[in-house]
């Protein structure tokens, strides 16, 4: 019974549960880091989508992003967040598979490190990093003539008092 009372206390925030940080000084730093990450990821995403169209022709769609929780830290909250962006490029009629062959130079031209080709169920990804931002082109041959672009920044620890704000933050504006 004592164990259950302890559980109720800790899970409801009355004890030392979770692995949260609530240092008032870290709040502006974390917020600024996430805002900067948003700018960086969106700019890189736009660059990669534009580069992919340059390499494969076609057009882009669904170019959006938002903040995601990285790691849960107790009831109804994440302890850290990051920005992710995605997009789709329906390739032009002249594009030749595998599309990923043409996209390595797009990543390196954008300043990403040497991309690595990896298998994923139904296809392959070409993934690389730049200053902590991960980016990948994916090709899923069974699903259509397109490539997907996905990017995400590193996880940033957020003080407890700001977690709800980041959880509820919406970002409906396309980056491209």
């Amino acid at each position: 019974m004592a164990g259950w009372v302890l559980v109720a206390a800790v899970l409801s925030g009355c004890g030392a549960g979770g692995d949260g940080v609530d240092d008032p000084d870290s709040s502006p730093t974390a917020n600024a880091a996430l805002e900067q990450q948003r700018e960086d990821v969106r700019a890189a995403a736009a660059e990669l989508v534009t580069g992919a169209i340059g390499a494969l022709g076609g057009r882009s769609s669904h170019t959006g992003g938002g903040f995601d929780g990285c790691a849960s830290a107790g009831v109804d909250e994440f302890g850290s967040f990051r920005y992710r962006a995605s997009g789709r490029v329906d390739v032009g009629p002249g594009a030749v598979r595998p599309y990923l062959d043409a996209l390595g130079p797009v990543l390196t031209a954008a300043g990403f490190d040497e991309p690595a080709l990896r298998e994923r169920p139904g296809g392959q990804t070409l993934q690389a990093e730049r200053d902590g931002v991960s980016a990948a082109f994916s090709e899923l041959p069974g699903n259509g003539d397109y490539v997907l672009v996905n990017l995400q920044g590193p996880c940033v620890e957020v003080p407890e008092s700001d977690r709800d704000t980041w959880l509820r933050r919406q970002d409906p504006t396309p980056y491209l």
């Binding site: 409801s12 995601d68 109804d76 909250e77 994440f78 169920p121 139904g122 296809g123 699903n143 959880l167």
Partner: peptide
Amino acid sequence: GFGTDGESAPYQADRAATLYESTRVLDPS
């Protein structure tokens, strides 16, 4: 479970979307 009520919806939505993404990644068919 414990600690959940109507105001938990945004967090639970993140979880639901994450599970959706994972199931789709692991079996795109």
